[in-house]
Deep mutational scan, measured.
Amino acid sequence: KTSLNPNDLGPLPPGWEERIHLDGRTFYIDHNSKITQWEDPRLQNPAITGP
């Protein structure tokens, strides 16, 4: 199984920011909706992941 390299996905969507949590995990901030999440928003785009 090959793992996706986030660098291959291009930039984050407008308004998003990638940060490192105190425990070392990466999380994502959506400044548009004022939410945070652990999942990379680029992986949730149907145009990238397919049907």
Rank of each mutant, 00 (worst) to 15 (best):
G50T: 15
P51T: 14
S3F: 15
W38K: 13
G10H: 03
L22I: 11
F27H: 09
E18L: 01
L4M: 12
D40L: 02
T26F: 06
P13F: 02
H21S: 15
L4V: 10
N7F: 11
G50Y: 08
G50E: 15
R25N: 09
E18G: 03
P46D: 13
I48W: 00
P51L: 03
D8V: 10
P41C: 02
P11Y: 02
R25H: 05
T2K: 12
L22K: 15
G15T: 03
P6N: 15
W16R: 04
D30G: 02
P46T: 12
G24L: 00
R42E: 01
R25C: 05
N5T: 08
T36P: 02
D40E: 02
G15A: 05
R25A: 06
D23T: 13
S33W: 01
R25T: 12
P11H: 02
P41F: 00
R19I: 09
R42G: 02
A47S: 12
L12T: 04
F27V: 08
D40N: 03
K34F: 03
F27Q: 14
L43K: 12
Q44C: 10
G50D: 14
P14E: 14
D23G: 05
D40K: 02
P11T: 10
K1G: 00
L12A: 02
D8K: 13
R25S: 12
I20P: 07
G15Q: 06
T49D: 11
W38V: 10
G24A: 02
K1M: 05
P11I: 06
P13M: 01
G10S: 07
L22N: 07
W16Y: 04
G24Y: 01
N32A: 05
P41E: 01
D40F: 03
G10E: 08
D30A: 03
N32G: 11
L12G: 00
N5W: 03
G15I: 04
P6F: 10
D30C: 09
G15H: 04
Q37E: 01
L4C: 07
L43G: 11
E18K: 06
G15N: 13
E39P: 04
P41I: 00
P6Q: 08
F27L: 12
L4S: 11
G10L: 04
T2D: 15
P11E: 12
H21Q: 13
R19A: 06
D40A: 03
E17H: 09
G10K: 07
L4A: 08
P51R: 05
D23C: 10
T49L: 11
P46L: 15
Q37W: 03
F27P: 05
P14F: 12
H21P: 02
P13R: 01
P13T: 00
Q37K: 05
H21V: 06
A47E: 13
P6K: 15
E17W: 00
P41R: 01
R42Q: 02
H31E: 07
P46R: 13
Q37T: 15
T49A: 10
I35V: 09
N32P: 02
P14V: 10
G50C: 06
P14M: 07
N5H: 13
H31K: 15
T2G: 06
N7D: 14
N7R: 12
I48G: 14
Q37S: 13
N7S: 12
S33I: 04
R19Y: 08
G15C: 04
T36F: 07
I29R: 07
T49V: 08
L22T: 15
G24S: 03
D8P: 08
K34V: 02
P51E: 11
W38M: 10
H31C: 10
D30T: 01
N7H: 10
W38F: 14
Q37N: 03
D23V: 00
T36Y: 03
I29H: 01
R42M: 01
D8C: 14
R19S: 10
I35L: 13
R42P: 04
P14H: 09
A47D: 15
P13G: 03
K34E: 07
I20Q: 10
F27C: 12
N7I: 09
G24N: 02
L12I: 03
E17C: 04
T36M: 08
W38P: 08
N45L: 11
K34W: 03
P13Y: 13
G10W: 04
T26V: 11
D40S: 03
T26M: 10
E17K: 02
P11F: 04
I29C: 10
I29K: 13
R25D: 06
P6I: 14
R25Y: 02
D8Q: 08
D40C: 02
D40W: 00
S33N: 13
P11N: 09
P6D: 15
Q44R: 12
K1V: 00
P46M: 15
D30L: 02
N7C: 13
W38D: 13
Q44S: 12
T36L: 03
I29T: 09
I35F: 09
T36K: 09
R25L: 02
I35K: 14
P51N: 06
Q37H: 14
L22F: 07
N5E: 14
I29P: 04
P41M: 05
A47G: 14
N5A: 09
G10D: 07
I20S: 14
H31Y: 04
K34M: 11
L43P: 11
Q44L: 10
N5C: 12
P14L: 08
T49K: 07
G15L: 02
L12W: 01
G10A: 11
N45Q: 11
I20T: 15
